[in-house]
Simulated scan of single mutants.
Amino acid sequence: MRITVAHEWLTNWAGSECVAEQLVQVSGARRLVAAIVDRTLASDRFPRTSVEALWPSSLPHAQTNWSRYALPMMAAWATTRIEADALLISSHFAAHAAARRFDGPSIVYHHTPSRLLWRPDIELSRLPAMTRRAVRHGVLPPLRAWDRYVAQQATVLLANSSAVARRIEIAHRRTARVVHPPVEVERWQTVEHLEGSHVLWFGRLVGYKRPEIAVEAARMSGLPLVIAGDGPERERLEDTAPPGTRFIGRAPWPVVREAMMRARVLVFPGEEDFGIAPVEALAAGVPVVAAAVGGALDYVHHGENGLLVEVAERSEDQVVAMAAALRQAWDTRWDHAQIRRTAESFSVERFRENIAEVLDDTLGTAWRRERVAT
């Protein structure tokens, strides 16, 4: 059985690319298709897989500025006919449209329905008010109708969290089975947990993750903050962070490991589709203080392995609530062994087992025989 994996674009390495890698490995797929491909990354991460790029990959500066080619990528996925016996799709924008012209069974793993179409506030906030209105009322409705139409073509839909499954139900009017993404739980479970000395932020410094909430909550609670990660918000945060805040950037593993070992609590104030970093913290025995929204609801169990903070309408109120939760978590005596156990169900091995089960249900056992033969 010839299985092909389709993935949005292959220009950097993050959570969705880890999923695509596992889909290739579990299914035994020999072919990966992406709208835009960085050839160096492809050869490094998929040395035994034929990686094919669609036509948007040949557009000027596509590998470094893919966001300007949203419409070409949508068109490419909708018009490309992929030849295979079965198709596995890793989608967070438009790759699920590949099922439209595919004749066999197709399984879509949704990281989220397209944020550009269904949750456009961050992108639209950068535009003038008149342009925002024109996009909302003139451009988005037909694109949403198209997105909903192509989403009906897939045989099976998977979602990476319960929150994403609810978004799929609203946007695409379909039911998706939740299969949590793979997290390197075992790697973090070997990290010794020491007496905590700081609150830890771990992740990219981008607006939707709300790093400014973490900084202001640390200031209000009077707790020391270590920020592991980099991004466009770093310079602004360095200018406004309270004295004593440490920025360690995109540090090598030994430095990040040390920061996690000595973390008393991880702060996670943004809304994520799933959120890998908090699960890594749990695997290391570190409690998580998270906004009660998005993927965090699937793994932060209030009072057991962290605290959930209800989302407030005003940022000022969110800071106050997050600061109070950080102080409460700091003063709580946690069962760190129990916290580690709550992360075990999100391991790479569990993900592989779940995907294999979906393949069995959808394709029968033929895919296993082919995989053994190769």
Rank of each mutant, 00 (worst) to 15 (best):
P224F: 05
V267H: 07
G295D: 10
Q22K: 14
R262K: 13
F46H: 11
F351W: 08
E83S: 10
V199P: 01
W9S: 09
P120D: 12
R234A: 02
V286C: 00
E258P: 01
P120L: 11
V267E: 05
A290L: 03
A129K: 07
D335S: 00
L59N: 11
G15W: 04
T11H: 12
Y69C: 06
V24R: 06
Y69V: 06
E123Q: 15
W55F: 15
V135M: 14
R371Q: 14
A20F: 00
S345E: 11
S197Y: 12
E184Y: 08
V255H: 08
E280P: 00
M74L: 15
P224A: 04
T362A: 10
L237S: 11
V179E: 08
S67D: 14
T112Q: 15
A324Y: 01
S162G: 10
R187L: 13
D147C: 13
A34G: 05
C18Y: 14
R314T: 14
E192F: 01
A323K: 02
P211F: 06
A228E: 09
L307T: 00
R314Q: 15
P47V: 08
P232R: 09
A259S: 07
P182V: 00
R174H: 08
V164A: 04
A78P: 11
G294V: 06
I122D: 15
P224K: 06
R341M: 00
M220Y: 09
L59Y: 12
V19L: 10
I276G: 04
R68P: 03
V215Q: 10
L59R: 08
A154M: 07
Y69R: 12
V5W: 01
F102A: 06
E353M: 12
Q189Y: 08
L71R: 13
I3Y: 04
N160M: 07
G364K: 08
E233K: 13
P182E: 02
Y149N: 13
S90A: 15
E258R: 10
